[in-house]
Amino acid sequence: MKRLTLFLVVLLGAYLVWTTQDLPDWGDPASPANSYLSTHYIKKAYEETSVPNLVTAVLADYRGYDTMFETVVVFCAGLAVLTILRRTKRKHKKNVKFRPQREGVDIILQNAARLMIAPMQLFALYVIAHGHHSPGGGFQGGVILGASFILLALAYDLKSTLRRFKENTVLFYSGLGVLIYAGIGVISLVLGGNFLAYAAWGGLLGISEVEAHSYGMLGVEIGVAFTVMAIMFSLYLDLASGGDLDEGL
């Protein structure tokens, strides 16, 4: 079985490598992928959306529909892990043979975490808010925010972290994030545009349509950040505790 798989995989791999000779040269600026849509985005995106970070502009505006579902994917994963693992009854606990006990508390770790968490969260907010002008955005900032809570849980323990950030609150934020994203789209739909057409916001906010794109993107990035933060923490909670929200596996 293993041999057969190896043979097939090598065969397929060799064929695929052979097909690459038909592909355009690597790094060729004139290749179709680098010239058609790409050139349009590079030339027009700044003009049309007033966002200099083209990745953000394409992500949150031109392909904002994709990104909404990307946020839904994150939300869905968190919910899936929760549905699969989480249990409130503790009767199966004895089945787990190896359950590490946390011995004492590490003062160096805790103080280091205490020093780091606030700057981390501040930096995360900066990454979210500045995603239009520099590398960053809702996903990246949200992951950093989520990591700060995970750090708290690692340095202290799950229970004290959960006292600060309750499981239901985590879920609420994850749903809220997607709702902010979809809500911005729905409001532009109510305002007479198509779904996620931020230009429709211009009249409401009293700004030009091009600027409205930029504001709309900020709004959806905030929504993305909420969901990603909450779900990253929720994934950690469930996977690290095996669904008991207790210490260790």
Binding site: A33, N34, L37, S38, Y41, I42, A45, L54, V55, A57, V58, L59, R63, D66, T67, E70, V73, V74, C76, A77, G78, A80, V81, I84, L85, F139, L235, D238, L239, G242, G243, L249
Partner: peptide, 27 residues
């Protein structure tokens, strides 16, 4: 070209999501 970066941001997220669900089922 910004487009592949955008697409792969999606693929990264999908990868993380699938990984999380797979690990949960593994547990």
């Amino acid at each position: 070209n910004p487009l592949p970066h955008v697409l792969m941001l999606t693929a990264i997220v999908v990868g993380v999501a699938t990984l999380g669900v797979a690990l949960a089922i593994l547990q």
